[in-house]
Design a protein around this nucleic acid. Structure first.
Lengths: 186, 186
DNA sequence: AGCGACATGTAAGCGGTTACATGATTCT
DNA sequence: AGAATCATGTAACCGCTTACATGTCGCT
């Protein structure tokens, strides 16, 4: 269960409420890990039951009390354990490739449309990654140069992925354009 | 639900049993989509209830009857619809990057170990992709040159991904090696 | 005697998504 | 007047994984 550990990771940087964690997920790690509120609240409760976090309730008037979660020693240990254990190979689940290989059953325009759509999307996310690298406020939580570097590298990873995919898509379209006759031509 | 559509895609290539589909998933699309038997049998039953496939029961002695599934017209239509609708952006869920960014909490060796481990795994899967491209028997189901090309492109996609990741990992390790002092040095 | 291929499934559980529910404050 | 922000959650559902259950045939 990576999500609970990611939460512990964020709480190690700064004690936070569920709401704030939601924003962190949408912001900083959003490109490679997402989480919804229900999930976050559920995991926070579970982590609390497991003794990995401690709640500090800060009453407010007119809105629900802020529940600020802090890492406990057990939580810190759980985080360290998770970091030490090796990650399995990231098996990616790519509905695009699935569609691509089966698109031979459909007219050629379908395949090309799929690729064109992919290119447009990749261009957009490439721009997003690039913009994110320019905005240094992303790294404000970083407690050291090294930590900031790691965050930057994670964004660069996404950027590299986009660029590789774009290069592949261009090659794919070119290769498909060269082979249209489908058995018979002029 | 991509899985049911992937099954329809395979059945369009060739009527098959659940068992055979399982092998197809493990083999040809295994690098970008996985499925377990329980899932496949369940989806086949669902597709049958939805009228998208038709079963032909072939009794055997000494072992369970083969249930050969065929696409119906409705199934073919469902496949075509799925192919025509655009795919959303592939949001990848990468536990490696998650661990990487939080590994600043741990000693530097942890981060480097993570990266080294990733490199080893990527090298292995790169070799696997490359080997798969060499083996033309992967494409035996292909009904045309174009179809074979699509399968080849799907493998090349994985290969490109591996190579981009490897390049990134090398850059990452170099960048991290240049920044060890953590605030104070000689 | 044991393993792998063939061939079917069920049951329990987990992680994730979507929809629902509540309600004040501040900005446009 | 309406939308966004802050702040908490519950319930239902869906897709996927893991473990369990059964049984023959052929190879080593």
């Amino acid at each position: 269960m990576s999500l609970q550990h990611a939460i512990l990771g964020f709480l190690d940087l700064e004690p936070s409420t569920g709401y704030t964690l939601d924003q962190r997920f949408a912001g900083s790690v959003g490109s490679f890990w997402t989480a919804t509120r229900s999930q976050i609240y559920r995991e926070l409760h579970a982590a609390e039951r497991a003794g990995r976090v401690r709640v500090e309730v800060v009453p407010q008037d007119g809105r629900p009390a802020r529940k600020v979660y802090h890492l406990t020693e057990a939580g810190r240990a759980a985080l360290a354990d998770w970091l030490a254990e090796p990650v399995g190979p990231a098996q990616l689940r790519d509905p695009f490739l699935l569609k691509l290989v089966f698109s031979a059953s459909a007219p050629p325009e379908v395949t090309d449309g799929l690729l064109a759509h992919l290119q447009a999307e990749l261009e957009a996310s490439r721009a997003e990654y690039a913009a994110r690298l320019e905005r240094p406020e992303i790294f404000t939580l970083a407690r050291s140069e090294r930590e900031a570097l790691l965050w930057r590298l994670s964004i660069e990873n996404g950027l590299a992925w986009c660029e590789a995919q774009l290069a592949w898509a261009a090659r794919a379209r070119a290769a498909l354009a060269e082979e249209p006759p489908e058995g018979g031509c002029a």
